[in-house]
């Protein structure tokens, strides 16, 4: 029961983008740890701004 509710909560957070920054940090660590020129991850505010701009670049809603 509790784990079910937890899973639903995770799904809602993921769907809404509430945990997008956490995902980004995880991804960043995985994808870039071996890069020659390591760039530190973006701050939460900066990441969020870019994330939103990118999300609305293109057809994202229809009739």
């Amino acid at each position: 029961m509790v784990s079910g509710l937890k899973a639903i909560w995770q799904l809602i957070r993921r769907l809404s983008g509430d945990d997008a920054y956490g995902q980004y940090l995880k991804n960043h660590a995985q994808l870039h740890h071996a890069d020659v020129e390591y760039h530190p991850p973006l701050s939460k505010a900066e990441f969020f701004k870019q994330w939103q701009d990118r999300k609305w670049n293109g057809i994202k809603r229809c009739c």
Binding site: R13, S16, D18, A20, K44, A45, F47, F48, K49
Partner: peptide
Amino acid sequence: YMRFIRPGEVLEGS
């Protein structure tokens, strides 16, 4: 709210 007050807190803001 989502940009300056609590950046990235999507669910709270919504």
